[in-house]
């Protein structure tokens, strides 16, 4: 437990700014499409509106459906507590917390899948089935990528790993870091239901993955889900940004600015990918995931081959 004011401040900023990231992605997509597009703060408006609504529950559902959104958000908020934010340390870091991070995302996914199955809808079952398939295949890529970073920095905690990565690391281990960053970017796209794996804008239930699992949620529950998804994207984005832009100036404001600039660029990058690529056919997605896993393995092998 390391508690200092900048860590708390960074956490608070993450909690507040997370819904901005989907806004950046949507603005980028609107720019590419030549549309006016939704405002940058659209998700804030949506959350505000949803939090003021009542709720409609399906007759088929049970307490699992009502637990899903809250437990999912609780898991991702806990994940936020173990990821260091911009040059600082995390609130709850320990040796091995990188496994806990994967576990918390797993918990969020598991309860979302159960809540989807609780509705008894064939569409939601379909989405749940696709979600578990793709995430099971993404899991090794994610953990092996983090393992490569652990070996590179000699630390098993996220704080230690990202504290150990510096600009000099990119001089000495550029191929390894580039491979890990590429694998993590693919995992980022899969885990956050983005093109080329899932299309958040699709309007056909049959083709959705993440969106279709939450079709039946409404009101504050749906607000929890949307906010949880944005926060998950923010947390995974912070990991990616801290690999690519390992800033340790020692000045809180500079580090924070680098992190936020990185997240902003990540949003633009995701928007660009979504504007310039078509979605993959479902049967092709496992190949993409195996590719991500292979990138992580190659990175690990390169790291293992480095003279100690």
């Amino acid at each position: 437990m390391t508690m200092n004011s900048t860590t708390i401040l960074n956490l608070a900023l993450s909690v507040v700014l997370a819904p901005l990231l989907p806004g950046v992605i949507n603005r980028t997509k609107a720019f590419f499409a030549g549309r006016k597009g939704p405002p940058l703060l659209q998700l804030y408006y949506d959350l505000w509106k949803l939090l003021h609504k009542g709720a409609v529950y399906s007759r088929t559902t049970s307490w699992v459906f009502r637990l899903g959104p809250a437990l999912g958000l609780a898991a991702v908020l806990t994940a936020l507590l173990i990821v260091p934010t911009g040059g600082g340390s995390s609130l709850l870091g320990f040796d091995g917390d990188l496994i806990l991070l994967a576990g918390l995302f797993g918990l969020m996914r598991f309860i979302t899948v159960l809540a989807a199955l609780d509705t008894g809808s064939a569409f939601e079952g379909m989405g749940a089935s696709r979600e578990v398939t793709f995430s099971a295949l993404a899991e090794p890529a994610f953990l092996l990528g983090l393992a490569a970073l652990a070996k590179l920095t000699g630390s098993l905690s996220l704080t230690g790993i990202f504290g150990g990565l510096t600009v000099e690391s990119w001089w000495s281990a550029a191929p390894e870091l580039a491979l890990v960053a590429a694998a993590m970017f693919l995992v980022f796209l899969v885990e956050n239901a983005r093109i080329p794996v899932d299309d958040p804008n699709t309007h056909l239930e049959l083709t959705m993955i993440h969106e279709v699992m939450v079709l039946d949620h409404g009101g504050p529950d749906f607000a929890f889900i949307l906010y949880g998804a944005a926060l998950k994207m923010w947390v995974m984005g912070m990991i990616l940004v801290q690999i690519v832009l390992p800033a340790h100036s020692g000045t809180w404001l500079v580090d924070l600015a680098v992190l936020l600039a990185g997240l902003l660029s990540l949003g633009v990058a995701v928007g660009t990918v979504e504007s310039t690529m078509a979605r993959l056919r479902m049967v092709r997605v496992p190949q993409l995931l195996v590719t991500a896993g292979a990138l992580s393995v190659v990175a690990l092998v390169l790291v293992l081959r480095r003279p100690v």
Partner: peptide, 27 residues
């Protein structure tokens, strides 16, 4: 943390939904 945050969120939802319309319908 998971347990406490979960409890907090469930309480928050209960507060939000208190006095509002909570309906049941088909899936």
């Amino acid at each position: 943390a998971v347990v406490v945050i979960l409890g907090g969120l469930l309480l928050l939802r209960r507060r939000l939904l208190a006095g509002r319309k909570v309906e049941t319908a088909g899936t």
